[in-house]
Design a protein around this nucleic acid. Structure first.
Lengths: 212, 212
DNA sequence: TCGGCATTTGACCTTATGGTCAGGAACAGG
DNA sequence: CCTGTTCCTGACCATAAGGTCAAATGCCGA
């Protein structure tokens, strides 16, 4: 997982800039073509650097991809971590939905990188999915289940409730071209999505008033 | 879009069998790695045929992929076509959800092939998306809007309602490994999803009783 | 301004990949 | 069983791809 010579010199300004340039270009390419479909030449071209120069900053194609993925996974789990068991149930979930939608809007390439990885069977992040992610989802599901038991939100399978949030928010990033093609010009998908998802989850979560 | 010599002989039994074998293998590979990430050698190996033999039945890698995609698009649009403006609104939508979920369950590779294509910017199906698909969605959205105006289902942005159906059902195919990793063993994602999505869309669509 | 380290690159290597082709094997129908 | 067609393959080709390396260039503090 380490790059550069095993020295521990502090990175120079040039290193910082170029590594960032490379990662940004790589994100473009990997998120569009997946790991196998991406080529170093293409990344180099987008980055405006020579291929050997890329490999001066990163040990291999894998290393670049790996770095992108691990950075991503952190950012990806954060919003769910932020779900507060002591907050207002409906508002907490809605806030989570909003944060996830913002992530899709502001980091669509990251979303597609992740989608590509999972589509391919998640070879490089299977451990995280079954480990860290599962653990986190389990605790949050427990919180949701508590809220349900207390009648503060509607009774639903908590895991699938979380899946639905992922599906609905990531859809706007991952299927962006389809969304725009179907909506036609003159639409702001994310603005519309925000209102729609708010309605959707409010309706979904509001507990039945006539209890049975 | 034609394969084989431009002759018009009826295809032999062997042709039929081998073309099918190849398409099936290609679906495996393309759906997992995308167009650029897939290789003819890999497809040939999965199919149990030699690479030149593949190219005896299909003119090129593109030709195989193209055939898969066009077959797919038809099957993909069908369930939405089946949405009946004269049926019961809630039941019609729920039936659509169910059909789409079955598609995800029974044809996950096709779902992933489509996802891969759209993720990559839909270079080969942009026309269909902005043409046939948009047209179909527009008519169905009009039907939904009518139902909403008549107070038979809740008032929501119809296009986004359709997106939500796509997102929620396809998620179970496209992110299968993630879903299974998070749920852990001993779960049947699709069975659970069916119940969950039924609840979700019933709650979402049922019109407000106290109107304002 | 000089020495040393960081940075960059052209040339090159090996393997993978999409595709071709000539000829051989298998399989009709007569 | 013969013959024309279909089917299949080994050998081959050109290009692309990941990666290496030695040498050149640039940058910085002393």
């Amino acid at each position: 997982m380490q790059d550069r010579k095993s020295e521990d010199r502090p990175p120079t300004r040039i290193q910082l800039r170029n590594r960032q340039t490379i990662l940004d270009a790589a994100l473009d390419v990997f998120s569009q073509h997946g790991f196998r479909g991406a080529t170093l030449d293409q990344i180099a071209e987008v980055a405006g650097l020579s291929k050997p120069n890329l490999l001066y900053y990163f040990a291999s194609k894998e290393a670049i991809h790996g770095e992108l993925l691990s950075t991503l996974m952190d950012a990806w789990l954060d919003p769910l971590r932020a779900l507060d068991p002591d907050g207002d149930p409906v508002e907490e979930v809605l806030a989570y939905v909003r944060r996830k939608l913002e992530l899709s809007r502001d980091y669509p390439r990251e979303s597609r990188l992740f989608a590509n990885e999972v589509l391919q069977g998640a070879p490089r992040i299977a451990e995280v999915l079954g480990g860290e992610l599962k653990a986190l989802v389990d605790t949050r599901s427990a919180t949701l289940a508590d809220w349900m038991k207390a009648g503060r939100i509607a009774d639903l399978p908590p895991h699938h409730l979380i899946f639905s949030i992922w599906a609905l928010t990531q859809h706007y990033a991952d299927f962006d071209v389809q969304v725009r093609a179907v909506l036609g010009p003159g639409h702001d998908p994310y603005a519309e999505a925000e209102g729609f998802l708010e309605q959707l989850f409010r309706r979904l979560l509001t507990p039945d008033h006539r209890n049975g």
